[in-house]
Amino acid sequence: MNIFRLAGDLSHLLAIILLLIKIWKTRSCAGISGKSQILFAVVYVSRYLDLVTTFISLYNTLMKLVFITSSFATLYLMYVKFKATYDHNHDSFRIEFLLLPCFVLALLINASFTPLEVLWTFSIYLEAVAILPQLFLVSKTGEAESITSHYLFALGSYRALYLLNWIYRYYAEGHYDLIAIFAGAIQTILYCDFFYLYITKVLKGKKLQLPA
């Protein structure tokens, strides 16, 4: 565990908490893509199957449980409790266009062809693109509430911090995982446009609004 990894994990945790607070406080999930949230739930479940096979540390186990539980809590709030506020019409991204290619890619490019490893690899590929329905929703509506922007910023920062963690681990431990590094780089690149808008607008107290 190094400082980048810890900061990345905490940023990830903060993102999830911000999202739950936004939905709970405003009693609304307007502006949040349920499609992205479904994809994140698929990511956590397929990645953390090793909860039952491998024990790494108490920290690791607890964080995995928090990520899985909170993602299902988010889905419950969006699709059951505050269903009426869900922005159906704008959240029209077809997730099968992400799920299928990621699965095929995981079957083709993986570290070892075992069910757990293929599912882990699938989750890494899917996580890289899981935010696309959310970014698509923001671009369709042309704006995002400030707490939604903070959520997206924390969520994007997490993988960017992991990139620093991987650089650190390569030099400090000789450890590297090319699949995670490439997918993590793509994931971070997808947020760049948003990062730019966040820094130039939201941090200056303006609403995140896309140019018409």
């Binding site: 990894r5 964080m63 990520f67 570290a111 070892s112 490893e117 882990w120 992991y162 963690n165």
Partner: peptide
């Protein structure tokens, strides 16, 4: 052992 890969990250 590549077959029993341990993923220690989240």
């Amino acid at each position: 052992n590549r077959d029993q890969q341990q993923h220690d990250e989240l």
